[in-house]
């Protein structure tokens, strides 16, 4: 089995000048920020308790035969074993409760709704119009405006997945037959990597996506453009690629709006060229990786629904890749 995943997604992006963040310790969203503060407070508290236990255990072992001493009494057991945790935990509970109220308050302000559907092993993304109908569909990449809470409606088409962008906030499962929601607010611009967090089968490890937080102006411009049809092929190679794309039957699974390709099984490719990665965050996005993916998907991501089109000859493959890359 050959591996093409030589140039990992992250590295390519780093070369492109923007590093994706996938860390809860580098929060860029209000939810993640609050949880970060909570985590710091709890870590300090836990460390103190840990030190206390070690010191007491050490004393107990070193200065033994201290029957009658405080450390050897049932009163100490109750004081440190029951009363202390009860007090500390009550305080912690209050903190957690306040935090939860703050998070709840954010939910009510969300104006934009994005429907994310988990599929083995990629993410279908639909931006909803104000009336709740899908405005347009894309895949494996989510853009959101900085400073505005965005509501995510989470659904699943097959098995249970979990939607998680650590830098923005906590995770919520995508469960067949149910619709879960989570509200996220990005506080600064950047590219935040998200990943499926519920084991969902063979390629659970390669089910990532990018969340790109942009200024509201940039986001508005993107939103307007993304809803439009695909860019028409211009160069000779792009035109050939488009033809080959249709001839190879890609349109049975993939949609490219404005063309005959209207499949709904796989990711929408209308603006695939503008995305940072392909194959759900598996490869950086350029003509080379696109060609590799088309011809060798089963080696890159064994078990994925995308077949390996290894019967395509070199020039055809190349033209398809160039065409796809041109769909910005």
């Amino acid at each position: 089995m050959t591996r093409v995943r030589g140039l990992p997604a992250g590295l390519a992006l780093a070369l492109a000048g923007c590093t994706p963040i996938q860390s809860a310790l580098d929060p860029a969203g209000s939810n993640a920020g609050m949880v970060f503060d909570l985590g710091v407070a709890m870590t300090i508290g836990a460390t103190l308790v840990c030190v206390l236990v070690v010191v007491l255990a050490w004393r107990a072992v070193r200065r033994s035969r201290a029957e009658g001493a405080w450390l050897a009494s049932p009163r100490m057991v109750i004081a440190l074993g029951a009363v202390l945790p009860a007090v500390v935990l009550t305080a912690l509970l209050a903190y957690g409760f306040v935090l939860d109220r703050q998070l709840a308050a954010e939910e009510d302000r969300a104006a934009l709704t994005v429907r994310v559907t988990g599929e083995q092993w990629w993410w279908r993304v639909a931006y909803l119009a104000p009336d709740g109908s899908p405005a347009f569909e894309t895949a494996n990449e989510i853009r959101l405006p900085v400073g505005q809470p965005v509501r995510f409606e989470l659904e699943s088409a097959d098995v249970i997945h979990s939607f998680w962008v650590p830098a923005l906030g906590g995770k919520i499962d995508l469960i067949p037959g149910r619709t879960n929601t989570v509200t996220l607010l990005a506080e600064r611009e950047g590219i935040y990597r998200g990943q499926c967090a519920e084991f969902c089968g063979t390629q659970h490890a390669l089910m990532a996506f990018m969340a790109r937080a942009e200024t509201p102006e940039d986001f508005g411009a993107w939103f307007a453009a993304e809803g439009g049809d695909a860019r028409q092929p211009e160069t000779e190679e792009e035109v050939a690629g488009h033809g080959a794309f249709v001839a190879a039957g890609c349109g049975a699974c993939h949609a490219v709006r404005g063309t005959a390709a209207a499949g709904t099984i796989g990711p929408d490719l209308t603006h695939v060229g503008s995305r940072l990665t392909i194959a759900a965050g598996t490869l950086p996005n350029h003509a080379g990786t696109l060609a590799a993916w088309v011809t060798d998907a089963q080696a890159i991501k064994p078990g994925a629904r995308m077949p390996s089109f290894d019967e395509l000859d070199g020039p055809t493959l190349r033209s398809i890749a160039v065409y796809l890359a041109s769909l910005r």
Binding site: R63, S64, R65, A66, E67, G68, A69
Partner: peptide
Amino acid sequence: YSAAPSGKV
């Protein structure tokens, strides 16, 4: 059970 009378050693 205590092996010895109480008190520190």
